[in-house]
Design a protein around this nucleic acid. Structure first.
Ligand SMILES: [Zn+2]
Ligand SMILES: [Zn+2]
Ligand SMILES: [Zn+2]
Ligand SMILES: [Zn+2]
Lengths: 137, 137
DNA sequence: GTTGACCTTGGAGTTTACTCAAAGGTTTAT
DNA sequence: ATAAACCTTTGAGTAAACTCCAAGGTCAAC
Protein backbone atom coordinates (compact mmCIF):
# COMPACT_ATOMS: atom_id res chain seq x y z
CA UNK A 1 0.00 0.00 0.00
CA UNK A 2 1.41 3.39 -1.00
CA UNK A 3 0.92 6.56 0.98
CA UNK A 4 -2.00 7.85 -1.07
CA UNK A 5 -4.05 4.74 -0.53
CA UNK A 6 -3.40 4.62 3.20
CA UNK A 7 -4.27 8.30 3.49
CA UNK A 8 -7.54 7.70 1.70
CA UNK A 9 -8.41 4.71 3.87
CA UNK A 10 -7.77 6.74 7.01
CA UNK A 11 -9.32 9.89 5.61
CA UNK A 12 -6.31 12.05 6.35
CA UNK A 13 -3.75 13.72 4.10
CA UNK A 14 -0.47 12.28 2.90
CA UNK A 15 1.19 15.29 4.48
CA UNK A 16 -0.18 14.22 7.83
CA UNK A 17 1.22 10.71 7.42
CA UNK A 18 4.67 12.07 6.59
CA UNK A 19 4.37 14.52 9.48
CA UNK A 20 3.61 11.71 11.93
CA UNK A 21 6.52 9.67 10.64
CA UNK A 22 8.87 12.61 10.92
CA UNK A 23 7.73 13.22 14.49
CA UNK A 24 8.18 9.65 15.58
CA UNK A 25 4.55 8.59 15.82
CA UNK A 26 4.37 6.29 12.85
CA UNK A 27 7.21 3.82 12.55
CA UNK A 28 9.24 3.85 9.38
CA UNK A 29 7.80 1.95 6.47
CA UNK A 30 9.60 -0.09 3.85
CA UNK A 31 10.54 1.66 0.67
CA UNK A 32 10.04 0.45 -2.87
CA UNK A 33 13.00 0.41 -5.27
CA UNK A 34 12.10 3.88 -6.41
CA UNK A 35 11.89 5.18 -2.85
CA UNK A 36 8.12 5.13 -2.33
CA UNK A 37 6.82 4.38 1.15
CA UNK A 38 5.13 0.98 1.31
CA UNK A 39 2.74 0.42 4.21
CA UNK A 40 1.54 -2.83 5.75
CA UNK A 41 -1.65 -3.55 7.71
CA UNK A 42 0.45 -3.09 10.85
CA UNK A 43 1.02 0.50 9.91
CA UNK A 44 -2.67 0.98 9.37
CA UNK A 45 -3.37 -0.51 12.81
CA UNK A 46 -0.88 1.84 14.39
CA UNK A 47 -2.47 4.78 12.65
CA UNK A 48 -5.86 3.72 13.92
CA UNK A 49 -4.48 3.69 17.44
CA UNK A 50 -3.15 7.19 16.93
CA UNK A 51 -6.37 8.48 15.47
CA UNK A 52 -8.46 6.96 18.26
CA UNK A 53 -6.17 8.47 20.86
CA UNK A 54 -6.56 11.81 19.13
CA UNK A 55 -10.32 11.35 19.09
CA UNK A 56 -10.42 11.09 22.87
CA UNK A 57 -8.35 14.23 23.25
CA UNK A 58 -4.73 13.14 23.58
CA UNK A 59 -2.14 15.41 22.01
CA UNK A 60 0.48 14.01 19.68
CA UNK A 61 3.09 14.30 22.40
CA UNK A 62 0.91 12.32 24.78
CA UNK A 63 0.22 9.77 22.09
CA UNK A 64 3.94 9.31 21.72
CA UNK A 65 4.12 8.35 25.38
CA UNK A 66 1.25 5.93 24.95
CA UNK A 67 2.94 4.39 21.95
CA UNK A 68 6.18 3.93 23.85
CA UNK A 69 4.33 2.07 26.56
CA UNK A 70 2.40 0.08 23.99
CA UNK A 71 5.58 -0.98 22.21
CA UNK A 72 7.22 -2.24 25.38
CA UNK A 73 4.28 -3.35 27.42
CA UNK A 74 6.51 -5.62 29.47
CA UNK A 75 8.34 -2.64 30.90
CA UNK A 76 5.28 -0.67 31.92
CA UNK A 77 2.31 -1.00 34.20
CA UNK A 78 -1.42 -0.40 34.02
CA UNK A 79 -0.87 2.31 36.60
CA UNK A 80 1.26 4.38 34.23
CA UNK A 81 -1.32 4.23 31.49
CA UNK A 82 -4.11 5.14 33.84
CA UNK A 83 -2.12 8.03 35.22
CA UNK A 84 -1.61 9.50 31.76
CA UNK A 85 -5.32 9.17 31.17
CA UNK A 86 -6.29 10.79 34.46
CA UNK A 87 -3.79 13.60 33.99
CA UNK A 88 -5.25 14.30 30.60
CA UNK A 89 -8.75 14.27 31.99
CA UNK A 90 -7.75 16.82 34.58
CA UNK A 91 -6.37 19.26 32.02
CA UNK A 92 -9.53 18.78 29.98
CA UNK A 93 -11.62 19.50 33.05
CA UNK A 94 -9.60 22.62 33.77
CA UNK A 95 -10.15 23.88 30.26
CA UNK A 96 -13.86 23.18 30.51
CA UNK A 97 -14.02 25.16 33.73
CA UNK A 98 -12.32 28.14 32.12
CA UNK A 99 -14.57 28.03 29.09
CA UNK A 100 -17.63 27.82 31.30
CA UNK A 101 -16.55 31.00 33.04
CA UNK A 102 -16.25 32.60 29.62
CA UNK A 103 -19.66 31.31 28.65
CA UNK A 104 -21.25 32.71 31.76
CA UNK A 105 -19.65 36.13 31.36
CA UNK A 106 -20.61 36.30 27.71
CA UNK A 107 -24.18 35.34 28.54
CA UNK A 108 -24.41 38.06 31.16
CA UNK A 109 -23.08 40.57 28.68
CA UNK A 110 -25.38 39.46 25.89
CA UNK A 111 -28.46 39.33 28.08
CA UNK A 112 -27.96 42.89 29.21
CA UNK A 113 -27.72 44.23 25.65
CA UNK A 114 -30.86 44.99 23.68
CA UNK A 115 -29.15 44.04 20.44
CA UNK A 116 -31.27 46.51 18.50
CA UNK A 117 -30.43 49.01 15.77
CA UNK A 118 -29.71 51.79 18.28
CA UNK A 119 -26.33 53.47 18.18
CA UNK A 120 -23.70 51.65 20.15
CA UNK A 121 -23.08 54.74 22.27
CA UNK A 122 -25.06 53.32 25.15
CA UNK A 123 -24.40 49.63 24.58
CA UNK A 124 -24.22 47.91 27.90
CA UNK A 125 -21.66 45.42 26.64
CA UNK A 126 -19.19 48.18 25.84
CA UNK A 127 -19.86 50.13 29.01
CA UNK A 128 -19.48 47.01 31.10
CA UNK A 129 -16.14 46.20 29.52
CA UNK A 130 -15.09 49.80 30.03
CA UNK A 131 -15.80 49.94 33.69
CA UNK A 132 -17.45 47.06 35.44
CA UNK A 133 -15.65 45.25 38.17
CA UNK A 134 -18.80 43.48 39.28
CA UNK A 135 -20.51 41.53 36.53
CA UNK A 136 -17.49 40.38 34.62
CA UNK A 137 -15.72 37.24 35.81
CA UNK B 1 3.65 57.49 33.04
CA UNK B 2 6.36 55.39 31.37
CA UNK B 3 5.87 51.88 30.10
CA UNK B 4 7.29 50.17 33.16
CA UNK B 5 4.89 51.88 35.51
CA UNK B 6 1.85 51.17 33.35
CA UNK B 7 2.91 47.56 33.04
CA UNK B 8 3.21 47.25 36.79
CA UNK B 9 -0.19 48.89 37.38
CA UNK B 10 -1.81 46.46 34.94
CA UNK B 11 0.26 43.49 36.06
CA UNK B 12 1.45 42.66 32.57
CA UNK B 13 4.86 42.90 30.90
CA UNK B 14 6.27 45.82 28.97
CA UNK B 15 6.69 43.45 26.07
CA UNK B 16 2.96 42.84 26.07
CA UNK B 17 2.24 46.57 25.97
CA UNK B 18 4.55 47.04 23.00
CA UNK B 19 3.03 43.98 21.36
CA UNK B 20 -0.48 45.38 21.71
CA UNK B 21 0.62 48.70 20.29
CA UNK B 22 2.31 47.02 17.36
CA UNK B 23 -0.82 45.02 16.63
CA UNK B 24 -3.16 47.96 16.71
CA UNK B 25 -4.85 47.31 20.02
CA UNK B 26 -3.35 50.10 22.05
CA UNK B 27 -3.28 53.48 20.37
CA UNK B 28 0.07 55.20 20.00
CA UNK B 29 1.29 57.09 22.99
CA UNK B 30 3.21 60.34 23.08
CA UNK B 31 6.94 60.14 23.22
CA UNK B 32 9.32 61.99 25.49
CA UNK B 33 12.24 63.92 24.01
CA UNK B 34 14.39 60.88 24.39
CA UNK B 35 11.86 58.65 22.67
CA UNK B 36 10.26 57.02 25.69
CA UNK B 37 6.58 56.15 25.51
CA UNK B 38 4.48 58.35 27.79
CA UNK B 39 1.06 57.02 28.71
CA UNK B 40 -2.00 58.89 29.93
CA UNK B 41 -4.93 57.67 32.03
CA UNK B 42 -6.79 57.21 28.74
CA UNK B 43 -4.28 54.60 27.71
CA UNK B 44 -4.73 52.86 31.02
CA UNK B 45 -8.50 52.87 30.53
CA UNK B 46 -8.12 51.39 27.08
CA UNK B 47 -5.87 48.67 28.43
CA UNK B 48 -8.41 47.87 31.10
CA UNK B 49 -11.03 47.45 28.40
CA UNK B 50 -8.71 45.10 26.55
CA UNK B 51 -7.88 43.09 29.63
CA UNK B 52 -11.55 42.78 30.63
CA UNK B 53 -12.44 41.65 27.13
CA UNK B 54 -9.68 39.07 27.34
CA UNK B 55 -10.95 37.95 30.73
CA UNK B 56 -14.35 37.07 29.26
CA UNK B 57 -12.76 35.08 26.46
CA UNK B 58 -12.40 37.41 23.49
CA UNK B 59 -9.31 36.93 21.34
CA UNK B 60 -7.11 39.89 20.46
CA UNK B 61 -8.54 39.93 16.96
CA UNK B 62 -12.06 40.08 18.32
CA UNK B 63 -11.04 42.76 20.77
CA UNK B 64 -9.79 44.79 17.83
CA UNK B 65 -13.28 44.66 16.33
CA UNK B 66 -14.80 45.70 19.63
CA UNK B 67 -12.35 48.59 19.87
CA UNK B 68 -13.20 49.76 16.38
CA UNK B 69 -16.86 49.87 17.30
CA UNK B 70 -16.07 51.53 20.59
CA UNK B 71 -14.03 54.25 18.90
CA UNK B 72 -16.79 55.11 16.44
CA UNK B 73 -19.88 54.33 18.40
CA UNK B 74 -21.92 56.62 16.17
CA UNK B 75 -21.32 54.36 13.19
CA UNK B 76 -22.31 51.14 14.88
CA UNK B 77 -25.31 49.57 16.54
CA UNK B 78 -26.02 47.60 19.66
CA UNK B 79 -26.92 44.74 17.35
CA UNK B 80 -23.41 44.48 16.01
CA UNK B 81 -21.88 44.31 19.45
CA UNK B 82 -24.36 41.74 20.62
CA UNK B 83 -23.75 39.65 17.54
CA UNK B 84 -20.02 39.55 18.20
CA UNK B 85 -20.76 38.50 21.74
CA UNK B 86 -23.20 35.79 20.73
CA UNK B 87 -20.86 34.48 18.05
CA UNK B 88 -18.09 34.24 20.58
CA UNK B 89 -20.38 32.46 23.00
CA UNK B 90 -21.23 29.93 20.34
CA UNK B 91 -17.61 29.08 19.60
CA UNK B 92 -17.03 28.77 23.34
CA UNK B 93 -20.01 26.44 23.62
CA UNK B 94 -18.74 24.36 20.73
CA UNK B 95 -15.37 23.99 22.39
CA UNK B 96 -17.00 23.03 25.66
CA UNK B 97 -19.01 20.37 23.86
CA UNK B 98 -15.90 18.89 22.30
CA UNK B 99 -14.03 18.89 25.58
CA UNK B 100 -16.96 17.22 27.31
CA UNK B 101 -16.83 14.42 24.76
CA UNK B 102 -13.14 14.07 25.55
CA UNK B 103 -13.87 14.06 29.26
CA UNK B 104 -16.45 11.33 28.88
CA UNK B 105 -14.24 9.13 26.73
CA UNK B 106 -11.31 9.57 29.08
CA UNK B 107 -13.50 8.69 32.05
CA UNK B 108 -14.72 5.53 30.36
CA UNK B 109 -11.16 4.54 29.59
CA UNK B 110 -9.89 5.30 33.07
CA UNK B 111 -12.77 3.55 34.82
CA UNK B 112 -12.14 0.36 32.89
CA UNK B 113 -8.46 0.23 33.84
CA UNK B 114 -7.39 -1.22 37.17
CA UNK B 115 -4.46 1.17 37.38
CA UNK B 116 -2.42 -1.35 39.33
CA UNK B 117 1.20 -2.46 39.08
CA UNK B 118 0.39 -5.24 36.59
CA UNK B 119 2.16 -5.26 33.27
CA UNK B 120 0.50 -3.10 30.67
CA UNK B 121 0.13 -6.08 28.36
CA UNK B 122 -3.52 -6.45 29.20
CA UNK B 123 -4.32 -2.80 29.93
CA UNK B 124 -7.85 -2.09 28.83
CA UNK B 125 -7.00 1.47 27.87
CA UNK B 126 -4.43 0.32 25.34
CA UNK B 127 -6.58 -2.50 23.98
CA UNK B 128 -9.54 -0.18 23.63
CA UNK B 129 -7.49 2.34 21.68
CA UNK B 130 -6.15 -0.49 19.56
CA UNK B 131 -9.45 -1.89 18.53
CA UNK B 132 -12.64 -0.58 20.03
CA UNK B 133 -15.21 1.07 17.86
CA UNK B 134 -17.79 0.99 20.60
CA UNK B 135 -16.74 2.72 23.80
CA UNK B 136 -14.66 5.48 22.34
CA UNK B 137 -16.48 8.58 21.15
C1' DG C 1 5.52 8.65 -25.96
C1' DT C 2 3.39 11.64 -23.64
C1' DT C 3 -0.08 13.10 -20.52
C1' DG C 4 -1.66 12.85 -15.85
C1' DA C 5 -1.62 10.99 -11.42
C1' DC C 6 1.31 9.75 -8.09
C1' DC C 7 5.56 9.93 -5.26
C1' DT C 8 10.03 12.24 -3.16
C1' DT C 9 12.56 16.01 -0.32
C1' DG C 10 13.30 20.31 2.01
C1' DG C 11 11.70 24.23 3.67
C1' DA C 12 8.45 27.86 4.46
C1' DG C 13 3.92 29.43 6.15
C1' DT C 14 -0.24 29.31 9.32
C1' DT C 15 -2.44 30.65 14.01
C1' DT C 16 -2.18 32.91 18.77
C1' DA C 17 -0.17 35.60 22.07
C1' DC C 18 3.42 36.51 23.61
C1' DT C 19 8.60 36.12 25.28
C1' DC C 20 13.45 36.70 24.96
C1' DA C 21 17.87 38.47 23.37
C1' DA C 22 21.18 41.74 21.56
C1' DA C 23 23.00 46.10 21.30
C1' DG C 24 22.54 50.27 22.51
C1' DG C 25 20.67 55.08 24.59
C1' DT C 26 18.73 57.57 29.10
C1' DT C 27 17.70 58.64 33.78
C1' DT C 28 18.36 58.45 38.66
C1' DA C 29 20.74 57.85 42.77
C1' DT C 30 24.80 57.98 45.35
C1' DA D 1 31.03 60.05 37.70
C1' DT D 2 29.49 55.83 37.59
C1' DA D 3 26.44 52.03 38.49
C1' DA D 4 21.74 50.45 38.46
C1' DA D 5 17.57 50.63 36.51
C1' DC D 6 15.17 52.05 32.97
C1' DC D 7 14.06 52.70 27.96
C1' DT D 8 14.60 51.87 22.59
C1' DT D 9 14.49 48.79 18.18
C1' DT D 10 14.78 44.67 15.42
C1' DG D 11 14.40 40.15 14.99
C1' DA D 12 14.09 35.49 16.42
C1' DG D 13 11.88 31.77 19.10
C1' DT D 14 7.88 29.17 21.35
C1' DA D 15 3.85 25.74 21.18
C1' DA D 16 0.64 22.55 18.15
C1' DA D 17 -0.49 20.30 14.28
C1' DC D 18 -0.47 20.56 10.30
C1' DT D 19 -0.53 22.61 5.25
C1' DC D 20 1.41 24.18 1.10
C1' DC D 21 4.97 24.83 -2.29
C1' DA D 22 8.77 23.98 -5.54
C1' DA D 23 11.45 21.10 -8.13
C1' DG D 24 11.93 16.94 -9.47
C1' DG D 25 11.46 11.50 -10.10
C1' DT D 26 8.05 7.44 -11.31
C1' DC D 27 4.33 4.83 -12.98
C1' DA D 28 0.06 3.51 -15.63
C1' DA D 29 -2.95 4.27 -19.44
C1' DC D 30 -4.04 5.22 -24.11
ZN1 LIG E 1 -29.06 48.55 22.98
ZN1 LIG F 1 -25.79 46.75 23.37
ZN1 LIG G 1 -4.81 -3.36 34.93
ZN1 LIG H 1 -4.90 -0.54 32.43
Amino acid sequence: MKIGELAKRLDISTDTLRYYEKHGLLSFSERSESGYRIYSPKHEKQMQFILRAKAVGFSLKEIQELLEIKLEKQQHSCGEVKQLTLQKRQTVRDKIAELKRFEKSLSLLADACCGGPELATGCSILTTLEAADDIVI
